[in-house]
């Protein structure tokens, strides 16, 4: 395991220092672990706050800015933020119109955000939340932790961010965020394990000829192991899983997302296969993203996230956004 770091203990703080230095439009409290828009709080605008373990960069801090998140609270590597962080972030961006918490569905994230929401409510802030659980690799059941939140988080943050930027009330931003979750599905595949800095070595061993199918974004092993196959076959595995859960139809927003260690040239190869698969089902890629957006440290691999668009969602997706890692229209 080789890392470009100073110290396993200071990874998050050091990265936040770099983030602050690189993006003057952000404010960063390295101590409190909060990143927020320099122009927040915006009076009368619903604020979006998200957060989660670090190691998924650019998620979430890279999506703070106009038209997307108002604040992010990055936890330790793969460790959900603590309630204090969420409260601090919420306080800093609350413009009086309420705050929407975008939460990836992990036990830790859910509990810490819930504790934070209680504290926020005690302070008189209006907080709503949306739970993202798009990963079809995980069986959804009342008796389990449910599906993980992965790539669709970016879609929720972008689209609900556009709703909020347009001045809609909290209930409306919450409704649209929920709609995005309901219409989105993901599946991920790992070619290699990532290595958590503090753990000092790869989380799992994977032979040269095998891949992990149905991985999340925390370096955990997947549902099953399979022989390494072509990009075409791996894309088909991912898309079969997605299509089996939510049949592909109509206009789709599609992200082929790298897990952090896979170069862009390979992601475009995977995207070509995903696009052909979708066309083969009679659906259409209307909007797309190809790149490293919701990562798992240095893991090699990819995930596909698909969202069924309608006119409203397409328009919101196209609305201007200006963040370190997603930007268009201004």
């Amino acid at each position: 395991m080789k890392k470009l770091i100073n110290d396993a203990e200071s990874v998050v703080a050091d990265a936040l220092t770099g983030l602050a230095a690189a993006h003057p439009a952000l404010r960063v409290d390295v101590e409190a672990r909060v990143v927020w828009r320099a122009d927040a709080p915006r009076v009368g605008k619903v604020a979006l706050v998200s957060g989660g373990g670090s190691g998924h960069e650019p998620l979430h801090a890279g999506f703070v800015g106009y038209g997307m998140l108002d604040a992010a609270c990055p936890g330790e590597i793969f460790t959900s933020p603590v309630p204090d962080q969420v409260v601090a972030a919420t306080e800093r961006v609350d413009g009086g119109a309420g705050v929407l918490h975008v939460i990836k569905n992990y036990t830790g994230d859910v509990m810490n955000f819930e504790l934070a929401a209680e504290l926020c409510a005690q302070q008189g802030m209006a907080v709503a939340s949306v739970l993202v659980d798009d990963d079809v690799a995980v069986q959804d059941s009342l008796y389990t932790a449910g599906r993980r939140g992965t790539g669709a988080t970016l879609f929720v943050e972008k689209i609900a961010g556009a709703v909020a930027e347009a001045g809609a009330p909290l209930a409306e931003a919450t409704r649209v965020a929920g709609a995005v979750v309901a219409r989105s599905r993901s599946f991920g595949i790992a070619l290699t394990s990532c290595a958590v800095p503090a753990a000092g070595k790869p989380t799992f061993d994977l032979p040269e000829t095998e891949v992990e199918l149905g991985i999340g974004i925390h370096g955990e092993p997947g549902r099953t192991r399979a022989p390494l196959a072509s990009a075409r076959d791996l894309a088909a595995v991912a898309m079969d899983a997605v299509h089996g859960d939510l049949p592909l139809a109509g206009d789709l927003l599609v992200m082929v997302n790298g897990m952090g260690g896979t170069p862009l040239i390979e992601l475009y190869i995977a995207f070509a296969e995903v696009e052909a698969y979708i066309r083969g089902k009679g659906a259409r890629v209307a909007r797309s993203l190809v790149g490293n957006y919701v990562t798992s440290l240095d893991m090699q691999g990819f995930s596909v996230t698909v969202c069924q668009l309608d006119d409203e969602l397409t328009e919101l997706w196209d609305a201007p956004v200006q963040t370190p890692s997603l930007r268009w229209g201004r």
């Binding site: 373990g53 936890g75 330790e76 793969f78 460790t79 959900s80 933020p81 603590v82 309630p83 204090d84 992990y106 036990t107 830790g108 509990m111 810490n112 504790l115």
Partner: peptide, 12 residues
């Protein structure tokens, strides 16, 4: 612990 641990084990 709640203020410093995070994750699932922190709140629990």
């Amino acid at each position: 612990l709640i203020r410093r641990v995070g994750g699932a084990s922190g709140p629990l």
